[in-house]
Design a protein around this nucleic acid. Structure first.
Length: 318
DNA sequence: CACCATGTTCCTTG
DNA sequence: CCAAGGAACATGGT
């Protein structure tokens, strides 16, 4: 494909791509893997003292209510909805369980530490579980740990839900003229895609991120539906094969930290086809990957592989 | 020092 | 009323 190579070459000559490090911002797969790790560790554990270092992450729940509900409570289960973690809690002296909602924001981490281990700089909430403590750390404090469940009511379909069919997907896409990438990020059609997997899914579906959602054909919607599930399930599959590791200790003594991979296997960046690859050759056609800004967010795509509707307007004329 | 990145909510504008 | 766009949030990296 000489045409593609020429483009790649000129792209490199005009502006060498600056390599941005991909931060492990948690999206659905990362949350899913975290939930699977946490579940056995938290199950049936009883909470002792609770420390809140950053009240903002509980909002609108107050520190007072938060502590009152959690002290003496026990974990019954952990699950996920979109990028949210759902901790099923049984409060002291109560028969019914309650849901504590967690969200990692962009920099949130949840893990266990030995009771006497020093806390990280940005520990937001810590629950004492006896010999261990459950830590919610969040550098930017955009995350949440709250009893306010309203956010999950606004979420769109769960990508692996049986109810989420290509037909349903097409139907909801019809309601918007916003670019498809923007709709995927909004969580209201499909829950769990973030900036990375939204770009990746569109690449695998060979769709321009700029196509208005309602202009996707049934075939295109079905292709995207498959791509979304494929991209997410591959990431989950990969995540669960990574051994637990606590950053800084590198041991597997029951502590863990998710988001960092041991160097042995291909890195986080290496498995992504377009995300943060502006200027690099497309894995299919070797055309330089482009970056565009949509609603203030970066979108990465191959201008050659990812086009608009055939016979209609080209959204990415080369 | 100024600016960028990120996910979500809130506010404004059309 | 809704759709769409932009600011705000907090911090660290360039």
């Amino acid at each position: 494909m000489p045409h593609g190579n020429l483009q790649t070459l000129s792209a490199f000559l005009s502006k060498p791509p600056k390599q941005t490090t991909v931060l492990p911002v948690p999206e659905l797969p990362e949350v899913e893997v975290l939930v699977r790790h946490l579940r056995p560790w938290l199950k049936n554990k009883t909470i002792g003292d609770v420390s809140v270092y950053r009240a903002r992450v509980l909002s609108p729940t107050t520190v007072r209510t938060f502590k009152k509900k959690l002290r003496g409570a026990s974990f019954r289960g952990v699950s996920r909805r979109g990028k949210y973690l759902l901790f099923e809690i049984r409060c002291l002296g109560e028969r019914r369980t309650q849901v504590l909602l967690g969200h990692l924001g962009m920099t949130g981490r949840m893990y266990l530490l030995p009771a006497n281990h020093p806390l990280p700089k940005h520990a937001a909430v810590v629950m004492n579980l006896g010999r261990n403590k459950f830590v919610f750390e969040d550098t930017r404090y955009f995350g949440r740990l709250t009893f306010d469940l309203r956010p999950i009511r606004r979420l769109g379909a769960e990508p692996f839900d049986e109810e989420f069919t290509p037909e349903k997907f097409l139907e909801v896409l019809k309601h918007s003229r916003q670019p498809i990438k923007v709709r995927l990020l909004a969580q209201s059609i499909v829950a769990g895609l973030g900036n990375i997997y939204a770009s990746e899914a569109l690449f695998h579906a060979k769709l321009s991120p700029r196509i208005p959602a309602r202009r996707l054909t049934a075939a295109q919607a079905t292709g995207l539906w498959h791509a979304i599930r494929q991209v997410l399930s591959e990431a989950i599959q990969r995540g669960i094969t990574i051994p637990l590791d606590y950053a800084g200790l590198g041991s597997k003594d029951g502590l863990f930290y998710f988001g960092r991979e041991p160097g042995v296997i291909g890195s986080y960046e290496e498995r992504l086809c377009v995300y943060a690859r502006a200027g690099q050759p497309c894995v299919n056609c070797h055309t330089a990957i482009k970056r565009l800004i949509q609603v203030g967010r970066s979108t990465f795509y191959c201008p050659s592989c990812q086009r608009g509707n055939r016979g209609k307007k080209q959204f990415d004329a080369v």
